[in-house]
Amino acid sequence: MIMGAYFKDLFGGFWSLIVGLAITIKYFFQPVVTLQYPHESLKMTPRFRGHIDLVADPGTGEPLCIVCGMCQRSCPSGCISLKGEKPEGAKKKVLTAYTLDFTRCSLCGLCVESCNFGAIDFSKEYNLAGPSREAYVFDLLKRLKDRRSNADADA
């Protein structure tokens, strides 16, 4: 009986090794599944939560933000700071500064959810690399202006 178990172990084990080799050689001849990243890249899904960006009013091109500060208050890590002022004669406050300290942002999206005016949205940017911490303090107002001027230039 013991000898039987010995031989069963021996042949069964040897067979399991052969089966293993068959599987890896099968995959060896199958096409690769990786993406050659810097040369090609995937499109981000529409819901991808990148860092936030201001949304412009499609008509005027000005930010939709009314400086209520809800996003600032909802942020768990306090990475949003914004300023606004009320120009003479205007009804609403106008956004004058909106900075996002991306070094502290955890991309939770609570700010976007808290905004009742749809004034902030997720960007689709994921290629974020920079030489210093300061490179991650984003001036979102400036980014919005840049986007607009780029769009104008394209048009």
Binding site: I25, Y27, F28, Q30, P31, V32, V33, T34, Q36
Partner: peptide
């Protein structure tokens, strides 16, 4: 290269 292709990737390129 061999391990790359067994693991369905390219290896050095």
């Amino acid at each position: 290269k061999v391990c790359g292709h067994i693991q369905r990737r390219i290896g050095p390129k």
